[in-house]
Design a protein around this nucleic acid. Sequence first.
RNA 1: GCUCCCGUCGUCUAGGGGCCUAGGACACCGCCCUUUCAAGGCGGCGGCACGGGUUCAAAUCCCGUCGGGAGCGCCA
Length: 474
Amino acid sequence: MDVRVRFAPSPTGFLHVGGARTALYNYLFAKKMKGTFILRIEDTDRERSTLEAEKAIMEDLEWLGLLWDEGPYRQTERLSLYKEHALDLLKRGLAYKCYCTESEIEEMREEMLLKGIAPRYNGRCRDLSEEERERFEKEGRKPAIRFKVPGDGEITFEDIVRGHFKFSLADIGDFVIMRSDGIPTYNFAVVIDDHYMGITHVIRADEHIANTPKQLLLYEAFGWKPPQFAHVSMILGPDRSKLSKRHGAVAISQYRRDGYIPEAMNNYLPLLGWSSPDDREIFSMEEMIEAFSLDRLSKSPAVFDIGKLTWMNGHYMRSLPLEKIYEYSLPFFLEKGFSMNEEWLKKVVFVYREHTSTLREMVEEALPLIRFSLPFSSDVEEVLEGEDVPKILEAFLEVFYPFKYKEVSSSEIWELLKEVVSKVGLKRGKVLFPLRVAITGRRSGPELYYIIELIGIKEALRRVQEVLSYIKGK
RNA sequence: GCUCCCGUCGUCUAGGGGCCUAGGACACCGCCCUUUCAAGGCGGCGGCACGGGUUCAAAUCCCGUCGGGAGCGCCA
């Protein structure tokens, strides 16, 4: 049978790293098995679902390149299907109408919690008499539909990641499958959708483990064959609690804005809970698909380490084709005030990507190319206070002046710089460091000859001249 | 409170009775290279939560303790 998997986010917020990893696992498995990857929007929470969130999630998936083969399906567009099946259960006596109000249930819950028993619905409306039902209807109460959980016995299943599970039915209360407003609940809609969409493997976060027995009960009630389950452990924050906003950036879109690139996300995220049989950690998407398998998913939760993500991002900054990094970085350049000049910007990328870990950092580092203003910050200016500095700057002016209007390559600039060095008669570093500072206003950066090539000799001369007058006037 | 899950360097992980003197990656430290940064190269630091068993042999199997987490909704 062909593998069919789904990613089923609820559009109540942005795609976060945990969701992205789940999507990735589903995607990788689908591609590996030459199966189908389905996107399903679980929008049955009418209060919190928004169209914006749905759009944002899809955009992020597209940015990552996790394109779905089918969908998006929306649960709110399938309401009649759920209703039909709820009615069927009702008719067969496997479900019943419940007239309890929220406050009544809340009361019940607190009472049970106080008594130290697992809070669950006590089945109050299971066997209502005809009169009671009529009374409630007359009161105008809108019933929800609850599934009748068999009182005893147990339910078991095999999880691909965690092995054998056994739940006692006595611990599961009758749960709502249809809200009083006619919208299905999660546990109900999932089962119906997974069945009709032919889902063969459910790969999801392990917070759903406790839901699985309820869903299995529904499969049983309908006489359907359940899919295989793979419950993946969660992603934690540095304090080992569930990763959330208070730990810093969790939204994929935030990482995009911060200058992370999809190749790095797609490589790093799966490694949080999956490892390859060899010691490899760097994978292209194709390699990852090839290497991926569910049986190497880890049981224990993983702490999200932005440091390693950043390292990996830097790796991809350097190893991806220049063209690609240029494309990714363009919006960052334009936003920072660089003007559109493809040939020149590509050179900037060529030079600066060697030194930086994110697109944002790269553009930030390249800022001195288009911005130059005195005074510099104090830790930078102290470099200019050295006694040899005027001599060095003058030597630079002398050597480079004849080339003021010439097109000179970086290797020729390097030769000229060496000439400056021998003219001054100090060690290379002693000469080039103050020059770098004078020309860029920064203590570090790429090779000076690249910088001079990028800003042009004329501009370099202007800057050095300006700094020279500046320090002389001090 | 109840149910369930998870515990290998700071972090991600390999390992699943002898190949373990516990391997790799990030981070950290040192050295090399160098245009005092970064990148790269080389080296170092650092871990089987604890206690009992089982066994000739335990990181690995069993039990307990401790620690962490999740679920217990007309949220998903």
